[in-house]
Nucleic acid binder design. Structure first.
Lengths: 176, 176
DNA sequence: TAGATCGTTTAGTTCGAACTAAACAAAGTA
DNA sequence: TACTTTGTTTAGTTCGAACTAAACGATCTA
């Protein structure tokens, strides 16, 4: 293969790896996706081991996460025990998948803890001390909770946008 | 102070710490912000050391980053060498500040590398081998680049939204 | 059954981000 | 000048996420 092509490919893989790690995913995950994305044919686990330069175990776990996020798709061939993977090419779909995944898991779990803190304050029928402090905490925590709720609505709204509407978004923010 | 209030406060600080680390920031950074946010009065570095339970060095570097992001603000008092900090309470502003910061730095640096890879392919006037592969790479890389450009426009658009319009957004996505 | 071929799981290791402790710098005060 | 008070920087350490190597399980074939 032409040197320039190889160089471009390597540079691309490296770039995707950085993007991956920037968004809080493993670098290897990015490399694995990049290889899959640059492959015209479905790729096997062993090919990914070779092309992405990571161990079989790492490919196994990372590709599974990629599939869970909808970033790649598993394709089985009849009479073939191997798993084949192809990259999702609709990046808006990918973005939605990732957002949806973050929505559950850690995200609103952490957000929920703000609500819980607030409830702790509200259930505090005590008359002991520091009414002022308690009131101030309530005010601040409530303000943050409201922000999170709005954000939640925003994301939820984006998630229910179907393909038709999403095309509107694509058109709006594309230059050509 | 009332036990419930202390418990609520601790729970809140812990929650913010998790959110912080979830978004790729140090846990301590979240704790420091939480303490600042829950303080009615401007706080000093030494108070933060005590309240957030991290070392002076860590507070120093983290608070500086928080200020750079516009999450807290430094307040100086006349005839007082201490630095005082207050939390920004407009979370939409905070979100914008963080987005803006990510915009520079790593983000479009990584994105740029995709463009560079593409250029490497285009500057490849060679006639050697693999015309097909090269064409395929170009196609895929261009598709990704277009997506990134759209995303870039989207973020840029959000960033130039002034306070008036941003109130529209707030209203749109608040429940009450 | 034995052996080959897959993907997964586990035990152990590596590596870097983020922390602490402590030295340092700067700027005021006595 | 010496001492105090404040924030920053540096050297060294810790700790966990993510990796590798290798054992394992499952499934097909001869």
């Amino acid at each position: 293969m032409d040197d320039h092509v190889i160089e471009a490919r390597d540079h691309f893989i490296q770039g995707i790896s950085r993007i991956s790690s920037f968004w809080g995913f493993p670098k290897a995950m990015g490399a694995i996706f990049a290889v899959t994305y640059l492959s015209a044919e479905p790729v096997t686990l062993d090919e990914l081991v070779k092309e992405a330069g990571v161990s079989k175990g790492a490919v196994s776990t990372n590709i599974r996460n990629l599939e869970r996020l909808g970033v790649v798709h598993k394709k089985l061939k009849v009479g073939d025990r191997k798993d084949y993977y192809v990259a999702e090419t609709d990046f808006w779909k990918i973005a939605k998948g990732i957002l949806r995944e973050r929505e559950k898991n850690e995200f609103d779990l952490a957000i929920r803890s703000v609500g819980e803190s607030l409830e702790l304050l509200n259930s505090e029928v005590d008359q002991t001390t520091d009414v002022e402090t308690s009131a101030f905490y309530k005010e601040r925590m409530l303000a943050l909770k409201k922000f999170f709720d709005s954000l939640d609505n925003l994301v939820a709204t984006l998630l229910v946008i179907d393909d038709l509407k999403s095309n509107v978004v694509k058109t709006m923010f594309s230059k050509n």
